[in-house]
Computed example of a mutant assay.
Amino acid sequence: MKKRKRILFIANVDWYFNLHWLNRSLAAKELFDEVHISFQITNPELTSNLEGMGFIVHPIKLERKTLNPIKNILTLFQIKTLIEQVKPDYVHSITVKPNLLSGLICKKSKTNQVMSITGLGRVFSNKKLKSRTAKLITIKLYSLISKNNNNKITFENNDDLETFSKYNIATTSRRYLINGAGVDTDEYEYSKPLFREEVTSSFKILFAARMLYDKGLENIISAVEKLKGLNITIDVAGILDHDSDNAISLETILKWHEEKKINWLGSVEDVKPYIYACDIVCLPTKYGEGVPRILIESASCGRPLITTEISGCRDIVINDHNGFTIPIDDSEALAKAIKKLLLSYPMRVSFGKNGRKLVEDLFSQEIVLKKTKRMYDNDLTN
């Protein structure tokens, strides 16, 4: 098969692209002569590393949280100019704002586009008037953009796919389910959970995510405080996201660390040692995710999981099989789930094995990359 010339990935920010999309972009090199990537740059060293891998990087100014129409129009024109300059055979946009802004450009220019839905987020979960209004606008724009017959949409979980089906956004043949980012099961290899001698042992819960209140860290702290008879440390690793209005400040994190409510690890390059050292990985998020990468990685490593009954999370955590799913914002239910797992080593082992099997069957990097390349191939071979 002859390669097409160019693909242009458009994401919101550099660290997100590097964490979640690097492997899929590297796989695109097998199908395209040039792989261009564009995002807001926060770390020039990261940009340099990506350029060293052969990517052509284009910085854009994209503020994720702003609803300021002037700023968004300026970003829209940046993307329009970029697409005109690169002349890609494919634009692959990632997350809401890049999807909508580049989608409008691609619809007008009839450019091939893939939009990746990486979770519907707070806009679809929050019941406040501002969020409900933003949800309606988002649905209208996605509906408009999907009238471009050169447009495809990928989803990381079934719930999001069904939501778009409900609103008749794109035809069935242009919707693709590709389960999360995928993990390298050889790198994130299975390891039997640690055996604790007795109830008085020191247990570890790992929370690894962006430092946002909606990720549920406070719920873990509250749940652990209810479990007076157990010695539990909450290891916390993650990225400080200053662009989000939901961010937990570093000052608050350090305060919790000093009060010994958490053990703050900071932003870690390699999370694997902390997964292997913990007894449970917990992410009680309050809004729809794609499929959280930390849950896939931890399941691959054989650790039991606790998360909430919400889209994306319930795709990787099957209740009472490889972990527990609990109601949103329910510290009492979370405490019960933690206690049940910590007091049963056989359950932790069983859940860990089940999680590993689930990743091998659905969420491995090999499966995800094969599905992604097949999606491109459907057009590239025509």
Rank of each mutant, 00 (worst) to 15 (best):
K2Q: 15
R4N: 14
K5Q: 14
I7L: 10
I10P: 03
D14G: 02
Y16I: 08
F17M: 12
H20F: 07
S25N: 08
E30N: 09
L31F: 10
I37N: 06
I37Q: 04
S38Y: 08
F39H: 08
F39P: 06
T42M: 13
N43Y: 11
P44K: 07
E45G: 06
T47G: 14
M53T: 03
G54L: 03
V57D: 08
K65G: 13
N72T: 09
I79Q: 10
T81I: 09
T81R: 15
V86F: 10
V91M: 06
S93Q: 00
V96N: 12
P98Q: 05
N99F: 04
G103K: 10
L104W: 12
C106G: 04
S109P: 00
K110V: 01
T111N: 11
T111I: 12
G119E: 06
S125W: 07
K128Y: 12
L136P: 00
K140R: 14
L141A: 15
S146N: 06
N150M: 14
N150V: 00
K152P: 02
T154W: 06
D159E: 05
F164N: 09
N168K: 15
A170R: 13
T172Q: 15
Y176N: 15
L177M: 07
G180N: 06
E187N: 13
K192S: 10
L194Y: 06
F195I: 08
S201A: 11
S202D: 13
F203M: 06
L206H: 00
D214F: 08
N219F: 15
I220P: 04
S222G: 03
V224E: 03
V224Y: 02
E225H: 13
K226H: 10
K228A: 12
K228Y: 03
N231Q: 10
N231I: 05
V236Y: 08
A237L: 03
I239G: 02
D243T: 14
K255C: 06
W256C: 05
H257P: 03
E258D: 14
E258H: 14
K260I: 05
L265E: 12
I275Y: 04
Y276M: 09
I280S: 14
C282G: 11
L283T: 09
T285I: 08
E289T: 07
R293M: 13
L295W: 05
S298E: 09
S298I: 12
G302I: 07
T308N: 11
S311D: 09
G312W: 05
G312L: 02
D315Q: 15
D315I: 03
I316L: 11
V317E: 11
I318S: 13
F324V: 00
T325E: 05
A333I: 00
I338H: 05
K340G: 03
L341A: 04
P346W: 00
V349M: 10
S350M: 12
K357W: 00
Q365G: 09
E366F: 03
I367W: 03
L369A: 02
D379Y: 15
L380G: 04
T381G: 01
